[in-house]
Computed example of a mutant assay.
Amino acid sequence: MKNLLLIAYLDLKESIRAKWFLVYTLVFGGMIALFFIAGVTQSQVMGFSGLSRLLLMYIQVTIVILPIFILITTVRSISGDRDTHILEYMLSFPISLKQYYWGKVLGRFITVFLPVFFAMFLAIIYGVFIGAEIPWDIFILYTGLLFSLSSAFLGIAFFISSFVKSSEIALGLSFFIWIFLLAFIDIALISLMMQNRFDETLIISIALLNPMEMFRVAAISLFDPSLTVMGPVAFYILDTFKQTTFVLLSIAYPVILGLVFAFLGYIIFAKKDLV
């Protein structure tokens, strides 16, 4: 455990020193600042106002930006160490493969999750300062959704990094996965598949396998329990799941998906040639 925490600490320090971490932090912190400057908390749209509307806008932007940031910064975690021979150097110490791999996972998760969480927490602090009503229930659930989405794409990124030797190929795969999932982020776009007379239940079920889609639907359901903005597909979701059940599933499913990919990555990493 001590070596695992040491690897996590070293990865955390290395990430903080990297320029991408500064950009990553500024992007999400800058979004919150921009929303404040634009007066989002003083406006009202479709009944959403104050911090509720700010959190809704933040979460809708995060769903697009967060996955690609996690993929491109994490997918080179192991493959980059292999390219620079840091992996060979690290394993020359009395550190097991398990400690190295899961230490990297832990350190990188802290790196990618804390900036998005603190940006949202900054909004809550600002709300307390101006005396606005704080939607604590939405804040807690959004924290869970961000945690689960980060877990899912972190696991996918480490899975890719475990078997790809070249950083360029790893980046290419990460972009492909992001674009592929992004193409199916809106169930309305899958109407093209419906023209081929596929069963609607099958199409919607496939769409909900996408962690980004689960995240989006759950986030919207916190503000719009009837999911009126999503059209007819809402009736299928509401008939199949209760809102509370669906939100909990939206948190649990990406976490499980991320753990499965992370374990698969570890199996590949432990069995293949390391250098």
Rank of each mutant, 00 (worst) to 15 (best):
I179L: 14
L222V: 01
G29S: 03
I59K: 09
S92L: 07
L51S: 04
G231F: 01
G131Q: 05
I70D: 09
I95D: 02
F48V: 14
L87Q: 08
L171P: 09
V27S: 04
V61M: 13
I124T: 14
F117A: 12
A262P: 06
D11N: 10
T143Q: 05
L149N: 07
G231K: 00
L97A: 03
L122A: 14
G172V: 05
V40A: 06
M1N: 03
L209D: 06
M230C: 01
G155V: 09
Y142I: 07
G231T: 00
E213Y: 12
M212E: 03
Y142A: 06
L227V: 03
S79Y: 00
I267K: 15
I72R: 10
P135S: 02
L34W: 01
F109A: 11
V233G: 03
S43T: 12
I268V: 10
S167M: 09
L146H: 09
A18S: 11
D224W: 01
I138W: 01
S191H: 01
E88R: 10
M212T: 02
L202N: 08
E200Y: 09
L22Q: 13
T25L: 12
I185L: 14
I16H: 02
M230Y: 01
Q42L: 11
F147R: 09
T73D: 10
T228N: 09
V23M: 10
K2N: 11
I68P: 05
L274Q: 08
M193W: 12
F139A: 10
Q243F: 08
I187E: 03
I206H: 06
M46A: 15
D224N: 08
P225S: 02
A183R: 09
Y9T: 13
P232L: 00
M57G: 08
L87F: 08
T240Y: 03
L54P: 03
L114W: 12
L173I: 12
I177M: 07
L248K: 08
I160T: 00
L141K: 15
L56P: 04
F223N: 10
L146W: 07
D239L: 10
L26H: 01
I110P: 13
Y58H: 07
L264P: 05
F176S: 10
S151L: 15
L192T: 14
E88I: 09
F147W: 10
S52E: 15
I206L: 13
L264A: 09
Q42D: 13
I124M: 14
Y266I: 00
M90Y: 13
N210W: 03
E200T: 10
K98H: 14
G144P: 02
F129D: 15
A8T: 04
